[in-house]
């Protein structure tokens, strides 16, 4: 084999290694892209939060099921278990006045419709249990209208007061995003009206 052939083979190996190096570099750049990693981190955080909620729901349902089984011979126990379920469903459907800790959010300037829709959506994502806007109860099927954002504007949200307060006011949080000078104050007791 001539010198040129040896050189040719060596160059092929060299080219292959170079290409490999460049490819690995490209892949690494993609993998270590902070935007991609950040997106997955937030997804993981949302999954953890969501799964915790699902586990709690599963526990509640298991308790409900076993109390129904145990109480099959006792009418009073059955009624108590069913009443508990009715109460929870009434909170969710807005058919009752709700009390509990939470936050009161006030605005001095009117909010646009999209800002209000985004704020209600953010409250739900944080884990709110009941909402009212200027005394109107907001449930899943409530339409948010432009006039709801008129001042004086007070939004009451029942849920974990600290989680709600900190999530609303964190840097880059919804209050900063909607860019309106709003105030969120924690409250030990709030009262949210029913839809009726």
């Amino acid at each position: 084999m001539g010198k040129n052939s040896v050189l040719f083979i060596v160059m092929i190996i060299c080219g292959y290694l170079l290409a490999q190096q460049l490819q690995v570099g490209g892949r690494l750049e993609q993998i270590t892209d902070p935007t991609k990693s950040n997106a997955i981190s937030v997804e993981v955080a949302e999954l953890i939060k969501g799964n915790k909620k699902l586990q709690e729901e599963l526990r509640t349902l298991q308790d409900q099921k076993s109390s129904l089984t145990e109480s099959s011979s006792s009418t009073s126990k059955t009624d108590a278990s069913l009443n508990e379920q009715v109460q929870e469903l009434k909170i969710l459907t807005g058919e009752t006045v709700v009390t509990g800790q939470g936050v009161a959010i006030t605005f001095d300037k009117s909010l646009q419709l999209t800002q209000l829709v985004d704020l209600v959506n953010a409250l739900r994502n944080i884990g709110v249990e009941a909402i009212s806007i200027n005394g109107t109860r907001i449930i899943g099927s409530t339409v948010i209208t432009e006039t709801m954002g008129d001042v004086p504007l007070t939004i009451l949200a029942v849920g974990s007061k600290d989680v709600l307060h900190d999530s609303l006011l964190r840097r880059g949080g919804i209050m900063e995003q909607i860019g309106s000078d709003g105030q969120a104050t924690t409250k030990d007791t709030l009262e949210i009206p029913s839809i009726k």
Binding site: G50, K53, L54, Q55, E56, E57, L58, T60, Q87, E88, K90, I91, L92, T96, V97, V98, T99, G100, Q101, G102, G127, E129, A130, V158, G159, S160, E191
Partner: peptide
């Protein structure tokens, strides 16, 4: 999904 009502009470 889950509702996890923990802080609300019926008045």
């Amino acid at each position: 999904g889950g509702f996890a009502i923990k802080h609300s009470k019926v008045k």
